[in-house]
Structures are given as C-alpha cells and as structure tokens.
C-alpha cells in the first residue's frame, strides 16, 4: 500500500501569530514555523499502515524554501521520500488554488491512499482534502478518528458535529485524520541521520502544468478587504481563596447580572 501524506508548515500555535499589515495575509516570518501537529499524526497513520501492509510513504508539501524542514521531519519519522512544490508564483494562494497545485502533484505520483489532516491550524478551512477528492475523482473518507483496512476496503469512523458516522470506501481514496487518531512518534537519531539522504523532489508551477495566471495572491479566489487586530483582554480582579472565594464569585456574578 503506497501512501502520500500531505504535510504543511504552519506558524507554531505556541507563538504569537500575526497578519501582515499590507494585505492581511498570514505573516509567516513572525512566528516559528513547524510541521502542523495534525500532519505529524497523518504521517504516523501512514507509517502504521505501511508497517502492517507494506508499501512506501511519500510526503508532499506546498510551501516556500523553508518548508523543506517539515519534509525532513517527516522523513526522520520514517517516510521514504518527499516532494516539495516550491515556486514564488504560488505565494498567497487560496485553498482552491492550493488544492489545484496539490492535485497536479498527486497526479504525478503512484498511491493507494492520500492522507491529510482534517484541518490546518493556520488555514482552518478544513476542506483541502475534500477539494482534492473532487479534483482527483476519488472517494473522500475524511475526519477519521479510526481506520481499518480490510483488503481493498477502508472502514472509518468519521467525527461529525454531534456524533460520528461509520463509512466504508474502496481504495484508492483521500483520507483525512482528526487529532485523536494517534500519538505521532518522535524521530530518533537514526531516523534523523537517515532523513538527510532520502530523496526530495522539487516541483515548480511549470512542472505541474499550471497556468501562471491561475496561481498566487494576484489570482486568488478570495481577497482580504481589511484586517484589524482586536485589542487584547486586560486582567481583572484576582483574589486568593481564604474560605469565602466561592461566595465572592457569586457576588461578582450577581453584580454583573449574570445570576
């Protein structure tokens, strides 16, 4: 079973994330950049599936030069090879454009499964995997909290608002995983050393056969009209409990007309 895992470099959620003043686009230089935690769970899923069923794991990202770091991280975890869509023309792409570039790259690769995160911590559209299924004409098996492979059939529990659904799907398919799927392994020293010599292929807009006037910020399907930071919250009263704090909170709530 050959698997392509989509991994995205995102600003670390532990650091302060900013929008650029000029165009309201994510300021990727303002915060530390890391592999999105959900995508390391995607890599873990792929490694477990190939360990059980054989096959190779390819990791695919679209991002600037420094996005190579997340590919190396995934390779160090145990992925076999990597593909990096890297072209200045792609900067500022919206989700629809991103899915076009990712789909074009996927068409050049051999796979039984594509695995993505259910939702990125920066884009948060939670729809790139569904868009890929649309473009590739494959079943989407998304928001999985558990996965079972039974021959050429997938069985998945999909988390939805207010419950979950049981799905089955033929393979190949586009799968996305939710954060309770697994705990990703840490790369060990051997893995980190091995990653240095694993192949990373770079693809440009021209390589993907995409038209230059369809990609990037100038051609994005959505545009920011205005972005404004919200004033930070100030701290209020703080009391130490000396046996009466519960009643004090009740008085505070009553004074604020909340009870």
């Amino acid at each position: 079973m050959d698997i392509v895992v989509l991994v995205k470099q995102v600003p670390d959620t532990y650091s302060e994330r900013k929008l650029r003043e000029a165009d309201g686009i994510l300021d990727r230089d303002a915060a530390d950049a890391i592999i999105d935690e959900i995508d390391s769970r995607g890599v873990e899923t792929a490694l477990q599936l190939t360990e059980a069923n054989g096959g190779e794991v390819t990791v695919l990202t679209m991002g600037p030069d420094r996005a190579t770091e997340v590919l190396r991280k995934a390779l160090a975890m145990g992925a076999h090879k990597a593909v990096h869509i890297n072209d200045d023309a792609l900067a500022g792409s919206c989700a629809v454009q991103t899915s076009a570039a990712l789909a074009a790259a996927l068409r050049t690769l051999k796979f039984d499964l594509v695995i993505a995160g259910n939702e990125s911590t920066d884009g948060r559209t939670a729809s790139v995997p569904a868009m890929l299924a649309e473009r590739l004409g494959l079943p989407q098996v998304t928001f999985a909290r558990s996965i079972e492979v039974d021959g050429s059939t997938l069985k998945v529990e999909r988390v939805v608002d207010g419950g979950y659904t049981e799905l089955t799907s033929p393979i190949p398919a586009v799968l996305s995983v939710t954060e309770k799927i697994n705990e990703p392994r840490y790369p060990n020293f051997k893995g980190i050393m091995a990653a240095k010599s694993k192949p990373v292929t770079t693809l440009t807009v021209a390589d993907l056969g995409l038209a230059a006037d369809e990609v990037g910020l100038a051609n994005a399907r959505t545009t920011v009209i205005e972005a404004a930071p919200r004033p930070p919250r100030a701290a209020g009263t703080k009391v130490a409990d000396e046996g009466e704090a519960g009643s004090k909170v009740a008085e505070f709530l009553a004074a604020s007309r909340l009870i």
Partner: peptide
C-alpha cells in the same frame, strides 16, 4: 464538518 467539505468541493 459536512458544510465546510461541501463548500470546498462546490468551489472546485
């Protein structure tokens, strides 16, 4: 979950 996925595919 469903709404956002439908929206994405429809946009494509």
């Amino acid at each position: 979950v469903d709404g956002r996925e439908v929206a994405g595919r429809l946009a494509v």
